[in-house]
Design a protein around this nucleic acid. Sequence first.
RNA 1: GGAGGCAUAGCUCAGCUGGGAGAGCGCUUGCCUUACAAGCAAGAUGUCAUAGGUUCAAGUCCUAUUGUCUCCACCA
Length: 876
Amino acid sequence: MRNLEKNYDPKQIEDRIYRQWSEQGCFHARINPEKKPYTIVIPPPNITGQLHMGHALDETLQDILIRYKRMCGYEALWLPGTDHASIATEAKIVEAMRKEGLTKEDVGRESFLERAWAWKKQYGGRIIEQLKKLGSSCDWERERFTMDEGCSEAVQTVFLQLYEKGYIYRGERIINWCPHCKTSISDVEVEYEEQNGHFWHLRYPFEDGSGYLELATTRPETLLGDTAVAVHPDDARYASAIGKMLILPLVGRRIPVVADTYVDKEFGTGVVKITPAHDPNDFEVGQRHNLPVINVLTDDAKIVSEYPAYAGMDRYEARKAIVFDLEAQGYLVRVEEHAHNVGTCQRCGITVEPRVSLQWFVRMEALAKPAIDAVREHRIRFVPERFEKNYFHWMENIRDWCISRQLWWGHRIPAWYCEDCGEMIVSAQAPEFCSGCGSSSFQQDPDTLDTWFSSALWPFSTLGWPKQTEDLAYFYPTSTLVTGYDIITFWVSRMIFSALEYTGKIPFETVLIHGLVRDSQGRKMSKSLGNGIDPLELIDQYGADALRFTLVSGNSPGNDMRFYIKEVESSRNFANKLWNAVRFALTYLTIDTVTLPAEMQLEDRWILHKCNRLVRDVRENLNKFELGIALQKLYDFLWDDLCDWYIELIKPRLFETNTDQMTRISAQQVLSYVLVQTLSLLHPFMPFITEELYQSLPHFPGCGNLLMVEPYPEYTETLEFCSAAEEMGCIIELIRQIRQLRNQMNVPYSKKTRLYLETKHISTYRDGIECIKRLASAEALLFEKVPDGLNVTSVVTSDVKAFIPLGELVDLEKEKNRLLTEKKKLENEIARLNTKLSNPGFIAKAPEKVVLEERVRLEGYQKQIENTLEVLAKLS
RNA sequence: GGAGGCAUAGCUCAGCUGGGAGAGCGCUUGCCUUACAAGCAAGAUGUCAUAGGUUCAAGUCCUAUUGUCUCCACCA
């Protein structure tokens, strides 16, 4: 038996406990046909990342689930790893090089990649170490990286398969281009923000001199690339203009007026300039009308050399110059203020530029369908269910996925171009000879794949796919995916359709969605605001368990939470409470096994009953992913029932002053039983402190198992003690009343009062008399009828009248008033219940159980008010 | 424009399939009662956003309204 410090100090134990788990191989999952597998793959953190509060929440939820299932007897695998995060990492490396005065082009592709791998080596491990600080019980022997050999093979296999099936194609399309990162980005990587801009009204003259058309634009600089003007086919105002030619101002190009239903007659003048190269809608109009696509911007958003007057100007400079020229030449009608949404790059924040370019795409329609069905048929379940709607909306309106990126860090596209004839060959290795011309010199496609392309394969690539490994056969499909609602579209949806397509199976059964951790003012935590709270600092200060407790308590799936340091403090206090409960127990435990006594006191049966119910509830809540509720129940039981009531009640039995060995031992037995049960129940939530305390219990050296691998408590029919629970409830009620009275009368705790109890349930109160004596600080005597002539004041419950000699209390008037208030309250309750019970509808339609409950309740109040009135009469 | 969330004590939030309004923090009062002052005991505070509806019964289900946040789409 070890002596515990007075206050819980997580720093003393956390690293030691983690090492112990690790050294005993508790994290490692082994294929075991005797057991059912339970698998979680971690949402791989970026190698650029530091652990932030969002991770802390995500990992805590996963660790709770995995520890719970492990203790429930599943072969639990939590598979960890990291993501190469192509654009984010590349941006960081470019930035680091910029400080050295270098660019990507300066160092070249090969040496750039060397830097990237060095980065991975240096920082990829950092976040893993941080995960360990949280207590994450990942199987580190199975740690993966999206660009390791196996995952890369998976990526290549998928690419080749999809290409052969015709799902991957290469084409000129309009895509989102980031002029800063100089790469394409997918639709979901664009973030829209409202900006104040202008609406420039321009006039484009007809070629035949018969006037002009007036239109408006927010981007006058794209005029250089206009290849038509469009009106609605049914718009009577412009019917005669359709098919006529206009002269494009400043450029002099002849462009047609076309009719297209894309145009909104009601908006502006009902005339739209069409710039197929720089607007997605215009691009489509262009396709329909066979319009030329004229690109006017370079890859860093400057005007191309074909327009000497503006060549080399940045897009915003060009805008000014062009507006100036338009005005000077009389083409500008007026300028309006106009607020509109502008797309920006998720990574760098620069305004994206729609741009026509040659990219690789995944054809999504056929892939999306089975993925929609899987969720619709509830083969995959979202928790909470409402996030299905997000998913369906996205999947049902899905567009082709642009997967090529003009980046170097990532999986390079396995396509090769013949240097002689230009023939494209898609294959894993460089081809030997060109199938077209027989040449043997090839260039590999310079582009890499969208980082989400590899994360989409994560649930199965990490288990060995495309190889049919034993791991894959046993642990796949995985069980639960835990992630934030912000990446359902980026990631969850892509894993679902990928898994169905390549493995023919769902990737996971349940998606547990959590919200964002916000700051105390409800703002997102972000670097730019500087409002982030570092989880590692909190762990350092309050312990990992306290942080975990804070993140889970009061949090419900899918909802955002605000984070207060104050709450971590109270979580820490809870840990300390638990610590001290065990510390107390240890000073009195003389037994070293955990068995329940044959003979138990009332309070023993009561706490066992409550503990057993707790086991049932916590399991139920955990099975339903209601982690916050489960934790709340544990908190209430431990603090209130166990510490404030049970331990206080059994103190007299535990102390040396108790010479009755039997009651002394039985108290120890029940206490250690309840402690083992609750430490086990709480372990998934607060693994460190529970493990440490469990090991300090005297039975531990005998059993020898770490708590982490002990079985999770199970509900036991034989521990249902309903009548004990009821009787104890009455006694608790009585004690509360007496305490209230003493408090109101300013009787100090140290002063014991005499107490005469009058009740018809002598046996019940005989069992509880010691409890009353101790917790109400009273010398209690039991009577069926209290002798007359005692000048007394009193406390009243439904089945007991308690009298305290008047001399021991201070104020008779006060006491009368107290009882009158009590009477009033009771009258109100009785009236309410009478109304309810005399309602024929209620009697007829409410379930019998509910009616009965209300009747019992009413009876209780009636007895109580009788007692109250009787006592009031005595007082006056 | 489309979809969804939230609105409960001074603050932050729980409240599962309808059946007497809860927790933490804060506040008031009294206590160093042989585990814990990071503690113990007692207490105060709520037209559960508004208006209807369903029901014997609504914080809970339905409809509308207001406020607020988010996601999706993006109209020149």
